[in-house]
Amino acid sequence: MNPNPLKILVLFYSQHGSTLNLARQIARGIESVAGCEAVLRTVPKVSTVCEAVENDIPDNGAPYAKAEDLKTCAALALGSPTRFGNMAAAMKYFIDGTIPQWLGAELSGKPASVFTSSASIHGGQESTLLSMMLPLLHHGMIISGIPFSESALSHTRSGGTPYGASHVAGSDGQAVLTDEEAELAFAQGRRLAELAIKLSA
């Protein structure tokens, strides 16, 4: 066991469990690479009410992300459910607050990937993934997707895109990943970790 593993931040927002399940599978892929450790973090809901009453620490699940998590990570996987073809307000609010990290170039040169979930198969997944890449490019991050050498990308009948892992929850909000969705999320995590290892060498 490496005493100083590379910390790879899996930063996500999830309301009904779909994006969380993708995050967990990406984390498994990260930790399949020797010398890498997945660090799961989330962000709180955002509204005038939530900000007034939300606890500083979640009652359960992953802790809320802090500025230090961004500074110390060797790579970043960013995930959010789709909201009208864009990331959820809670994630956008967090990202909009990373100007100090941008000024300090704390994420510059680090690899990154994105993932999402939507209710419908044409629910704006790809535009969400692409729009999530934009602030990461402003931070100087190196964007990694999923190559078609991953055979599940050609066979999936649900989620999974070359831009990043995804899940189709359906009208009933099914949070359980299909085999292909799980395989692609795992592959994305593994690929991100391998890139982090190479770039840190």
Results as ranks from 00 to 15, higher is better:
V46K: 00
S166V: 07
G140L: 07
H139S: 03
L103D: 11
E31T: 13
F94Q: 12
G145T: 11
L76D: 05
R28N: 15
G79T: 07
N55M: 01
A182N: 04
T156G: 04
G159T: 07
Q188N: 07
A52K: 14
S149P: 01
R24L: 15
C36R: 08
L11R: 10
T82Y: 06
A52Q: 14
I143R: 00
G85T: 13
L199V: 09
A74D: 12
A74C: 10
L137N: 01
K7C: 12
I146T: 10
L103C: 00
A90S: 13
T19W: 11
E183W: 01
E150L: 04
R157M: 01
G160W: 05
E68F: 04
V10I: 15
L22M: 05
I142L: 14
L195W: 06
C36T: 15
Y13C: 03
S120D: 11
V49E: 09
S47C: 02
R41G: 09
G160I: 04
S166M: 03
C73G: 10
I142K: 12
Q15K: 13
A89Q: 10
A185F: 03
A193F: 00
L9F: 08
A90D: 09
G189A: 04
K66E: 15
A27E: 13
N21W: 02
Q174Y: 11
F186A: 02
K92F: 03
A67K: 14
D59C: 00
R41H: 07
T116D: 06
G124Y: 06
H139C: 06
P63C: 12
H138M: 00
S131R: 14
M87L: 14
K92L: 07
S47Y: 07
L184Q: 07
K110Q: 02
V49N: 08
N21M: 05
N4H: 15
L78F: 11
T128Y: 05
S18W: 02
M141F: 03
M1D: 14
G170K: 10
V176I: 15
L40R: 08
H167G: 02
P58E: 09
S200C: 08
R157L: 09
G109R: 04
A201T: 08
E68K: 12
L195T: 01
R83M: 05
T178E: 14
H139A: 08
R191F: 00
N55T: 01
V49I: 12
S118W: 06
S14P: 02
G124A: 04
L22I: 13
Q25N: 08
H155C: 05
G109A: 05
G170A: 01
F115R: 10
P111M: 03
G189M: 04
S14R: 09
V168R: 04
I26D: 11
G61Y: 08
A182F: 00
N55W: 01
G17V: 08
P58Q: 08
V43R: 03
Y13D: 09
S117T: 14
R24N: 15
K110L: 04
F84E: 02
T128N: 03
V176F: 06
